[in-house]
Every structure is written in C-alpha cells, then in structure tokens.
Design a protein around this nucleic acid. Structure first.
Lengths: 209, 209
DNA sequence: AAGAATTTAGCACGGTGGTGCTACAAAGGC
DNA sequence: GCCTTTGTAGCACCACCGTGCTAAATTCTT
C-alpha cells in the first residue's frame, strides 16, 4: 500500500489552497476545480480525500478555527509573573489582544479568511457550528484578558470585566473588519492607536499620559 | 410608446429582490434567474432594465448606499436646540449612533445586506467604489456626532473627537457584525448596553452612575 | 514476482449560470 | 389604421459546477 502521502497533510494542503483562493477571489470562487488548480492537484486527486465540495469547506473552516484557537492559547500562556509591574501586565494584555488584529501580513490574511467564512456561515448552516466556536473562543480570550486584568488590579475602579467583554470584543472585531475592507483608510498604526486608546481608558497606566 | 411602468421604479423593485435573496441565501445566490423569480418577473423582463448581471449588482449596491446615506442625514438633522441640557444632547447623539445598529427588524435586514455587499466588494472591484462611499459616509456621521459633542462641551476633558472617531466607528460596526452573525448571543439589549457604556465613558452624564 | 491497496487522473452527465438573439404583445403618434 | 417604441417572454448557446464512475499508475506486503 503506497502510503507516500499523509492523508491529513494532503487535506491541510487543500485547505490552504481554499484560503488562498478565498483571499484572492472570494469564497464563492473556491470551487473544486479552482481549489485543485490552486493546490497543483487534479480534481480527481482532491476528491479522493474528501466526500464532496461541502466536506472540503467544512474541513477548511474547522482547520482554520483549530489553528486560530491554538495560536490564541499560546499567547494566553506566556504572561508575566505575579510579581511584575502593573504596566508590564497591561502591556501583556495589549499584546494578547493585538493577536486578534491584522497587524502583519500573516494575521491580515487570516482575518480575510475569517471574514469570508464567518459571513458565509450566516447562510450556510453546515458552517455555522464552526463560526460559533470561533466566536466563542475569541470572546473567551477577550474575557480572560479582562478578568485577568481585574484580578491583577489594573482594571479601573467601577469597570466590570463581564460588562466590558462585549464592548472590547466588538471593538477588536470592528477594527479588524475595517482594516481588511478598507486597507487604505486604516493601517496598522491606526489599529494599534485605537486599541491602546481603549486600554488606556479601562486600564490606566502610570507612565502613560 | 407604452410607458406603463416607471423604469427606475422597476429597477428599485429588482434591487429589493436582490436584497431579499441576499439576506435569505447569500449574495452568491443572487443570480439573474433567482432574482427574477424573487421579483415575480421573467428573466427577459429583468434584463430589459439592466445591461447585465454585474449592472444589477452595481445598481442594487448604489441604491442601498444612497438609501442608507439619506436616512443617516435625516437623523443628523433633528437634534436638540442649543439651549437643551447636556444630557439631552448626549441622548440625541446616542440616538444618532443607534441608527447604525440592528436594533429592529428593518435595520437588522439592512445590516445583513450591508455585510454581504461590503465583504463581497473586497474581491469585486466594480463594487468597491460604493463600499468606500458607504464607509466614508458612515464614518462621517460618527465624526459629526463626536465633533458636535465636543462643540457642545459634553465630551470628557482630554478626549479628542478625531482620535475617537475610529474607535467609536469600529465599535459600532463590530457590534453590528456580531449581532448579525451571532443573533443568539448578542441581542438588541446587549447592543444598547455596549453603546451606552461607551458613551458614558467619553460623554459622562450628570444623572448616570 | 504477484497481488492488493492506495493514489492519481479524467470522462461524462445533469444542473445552473450569464448572455445574444428573436418573437410577440401593448400603446401612443401620425 | 399603421407604424414605431417600449415592455415581456423565452430559446439556445457556451461556461462552469459537483459528482458518479472508470481506469491507470504506484508501491507495499507476501
């Protein structure tokens, strides 16, 4: 039995091809034929690893959600020790949230894919479970940051972590949305400034203004 | 010459059909055939009023942008007189911004269409000019609200209208995005709460907490 | 070497899409 | 009454899509 290829690796390659086509031409062009061409494979080959086109989409989105989720977990782990200064803690929180913004090429591409898939999931029920998982896990990160801030004592008095979660989460996704849809009007600097402004508001720093 | 029908009115009807199909099945299903069926017309009839399918999309999006723009202008007009109390001014600002949120069925439908079209415009250059106009005119509204707040003196000290524009705009669009994509997790009350919380922060009220 | 499982490749069908083109009905001007 | 303009309708063509199916190449096991 020729096990030259790792089936799961092949599927990942196909998923990556789906992402490239989606970024370049939109999700509606991610047909079996276009994806196969993008991956440098024959249509029949691609079909060997998937049940059908819908299966490809589901796999691609699940792969995406897993990947993003894993990356977010990483950045939650490495935070400063309990003895660190308040400003240092705030900086770590800012870094964790910045992970959700398209500040570099990689995360910009990721954001483009995220947008295409989550929006498509509104009218494609087979994708909705994954869109919901992505929503929940991202919200969870934001919530974790805010509760950690609360626990660390850097959250301003009268500011409640639970209440703030949706506001901060919406802000971050709104910034990501604007940056991806209007790259000429909102660059990385603008993103950083808006996020920093928001954090300055709810987590006042000593050194800051 | 039988001028039974007003051609522009017919085009508007077709555009409305495009919106309904888009909301229900997604923009990718807004084909000539589907749209004609949705409008209760024959394909040939629809084609009589448009150059082609692309023309339909362009017209629909332009129509949408114009309509939203007109509605926003209305709500900018009716603000309290210069003698009104500060809290009354803030309430008017909040009402203007609430116009951008999917708080009722009509604006929810509008938001769904907005999302489908603006996202699609990222990879469809013929739609991009209208997406940019929509972005600009909405941003303009947010900016107007903030400068008016600054002029009225209700903006907190140290808060700059220009700097705040992108943050508030992103927050509003982020809320709209979340509410439309995850209707089960963010309802109208949540939207209102987040917006109010933000305004409380940058435009502190006397009566409020 | 032989056989079997895996992988790659492609044909052909039915369905849907946009569009060029034609045919016909309706209605006002001469 | 006739003709021209405007609206309605539909056929036919080609392109693209997903998919059932078949066939061939590849490579490990025995």
């Amino acid at each position: 039995m020729p096990k030259k290829v790792d089936p799961e690796a092949r599927r990942h390659e196909v998923a990556e091809a789906v992402f490239r086509v989606t970024r370049r031409d939109g999700l509606e062009h991610a047909s079996l034929r276009n994806v196969a061409a993008e991956a440098g494979l024959a249509v029949g080959s691609v079909r060997h690893y998937f049940e059908g086109q819908t299966d490809i989409m589901i796999f691609a989105m699940r792969h995406f959600v897993d990947r993003v989720g894993a990356r977010l977990l990483e950045h939650v782990r490495d935070r400063p020790g309990p003895g660190a200064s308040a400003d240092r803690h705030v900086a770590a929180f800012e870094a964790a949230l910045a992970e959700l913004l398209p500040l570099d090429a990689e995360r910009r591409e990721e954001t483009e894919v995220w947008l295409a898939f989550t929006v498509s999931a509104r009218t494609r029920e087979e994708l909705r479970p994954y869109a919901e998982r992505l929503y929940d896990q991202t919200r969870e990160l934001v919530h974790k940051v805010l509760t950690a801030a609360e626990r660390t004592g850097v959250l301003r008095d009268g500011v409640d972590a639970d209440t703030e979660t949706e506001r901060l989460y919406a802000l971050v996704d709104g910034l990501a949305l604007h940056s991806v849809l209007q790259p000429g009007r909102l660059d990385a600097e603008g993103l950083r400034a808006a996020l920093r402004r928001h954090l300055d508001e709810i987590m006042p720093r000593a050194a800051g203004r």
